[in-house]
Every structure is written in structure tokens, then in C-alpha cells.
């Protein structure tokens, strides 16, 4: 995922085995939305802060990104959250997770160095790559000229599947803001 140019339409993964449609439409969609709306933008924040030589900002953004990555993993396990604080509770009560353990080593202190910021970026990239492999679908990067339309089309397909399975419409607005 992170090796893709920003905005490129991400292909829906073709599973080698069947998928649990209810899991996909309920749990995985929530994780995919958080991945698309919060993980990807905060990952971009890490990169742009590093480019601006704002090393403490890069580490702060990395912490925010790792938090959402860990939240996505909990959602894939069936955890439900409607707010950042509920995500924090899911993470705190959840099983061991390398993304969260990585946060323990990242300090956005004023004197943060470039090497610390680069390590933060590497941790984020590794954690995001691992998450993307677990997700059955990826929302294209919405906030780019080329990613917006594919994202809107995929959202429409997801809504049709949820309707077919008797699930209520997904609360997109809550996550998009």
C-alpha cells in the first residue's frame, strides 16, 4: 500500500479463499474507512513533517498514525468504536500489538532528531503495510485528484452490500467529519 504513488486507485484485493461477507461489511469496512480517512492522512503527515524537518511533529504524527492502525486491528477483531477515546479503550484492553508497543519508544520531544523521526516513519510504514495486508479492501486515497472518484465508487459498492445483508447504512459522516 505505502509503495503506491499517492492517489493511485488501490485495487480491491482478490482473495484466494472465500470471505465472510458479514465480517467484511461490518468489521472490515469500519477498519478500511479508518485506514482511508485517518491512517493514510496521518501517515502522509509523518512524511511531510519529515520533509519540513519538523522532527518532533513527524514523531507526533507517527504516534497518531500508530494509534489509528492499532484501532483498525481491533476493529478487524470485532471491536466497535465511535470515538477516539473508545478506540483507546479497545487498544488498552486488547491483545498484544506491535503497533502500540512501537509507540512506547517514540517521543515527540522538542529535541527530537532526524534519525528518530526517520525511525518513526519506518515503524509507521511497517505497521501500515502489515495492516493493509489484513484488510480485504482498501479505500483509494480520497484527498487526491485521482483517488477521489474511485473512493466514492467503492463506498457505493459497500453500501449496496450492506443493504443486501440487512445492515444499516454505514456512518460515513462520523468518520469523514
Amino acid at each position: 500500500m505505502s509503495s503506491q504513488p499517492p492517489g493511485r486507485a488501490a485495487p480491491v484485493a482478490t482473495p484466494a479463499v472465500e470471505l465472510d461477507a458479514h465480517w467484511l461489511a461490518a468489521d472490515a469496512v469500519a477498519a478500511a474507512v479508518v485506514h482511508g480517512m485517518l491512517v493514510q492522512p496521518t501517515q502522509a503527515d509523518v512524511t511531510s513533517a519529515l520533509e519540513s524537518r519538523d522532527f518532533a511533529g513527524a514523531i507526533a504524527a507517527a504516534n497518531a498514525c500508530l494509534r489509528w492502525i492499532a484501532g483498525c486491528r481491533e476493529m478487524l477483531r470485532g471491536g466497535a468504536a465511535r470515538a477516539g477515546l473508545e478506540v483507546d479503550l479497545l487498544i488498552a484492553a486488547g491483545p498484544p500489538d506491535a503497533s502500540i508497543d512501537a509507540m512506547d519508544t517514540l517521543s515527540p520531544r522538542a529535541a527530537a532528531t532526524e534519525s528518530e523521526a526517520r525511525r518513526a516513519l519506518a515503524l509507521v510504514e511497517d505497521a501500515e503495510r502489515a495492516l493493509a495486508e489484513e484488510l480485504p479492501l482498501l479505500l483509494p486515497v480520497r484527498r487526491t485528484p485521482s483517488g477521489h472518484r474511485p473512493a466514492v465508487e467503492l463506498v457505493s459498492q459497500i453500501e449496496r452490500l450492506r443493504h443486501r445483508l440487512g445492515l444499516p447504512p454505514f456512518d460515513w459522516e462520523a468518520w469523514i467529519g
Partner: peptide
């Protein structure tokens, strides 16, 4: 927003 917290910390007590 967490991203800009270090940039908002110029006040010594905030730092």
C-alpha cells in the same frame, strides 16, 4: 490536534 502539539509548545510551561 496531536500533529501540531510540538509546534504549539513554545511556552516553557507547555514544553
Amino acid at each position: 490536534g496531536e500533529r501540531w502539539l510540538p509546534a504549539r509548545s513554545s511556552h516553557p510551561a507547555v514544553a
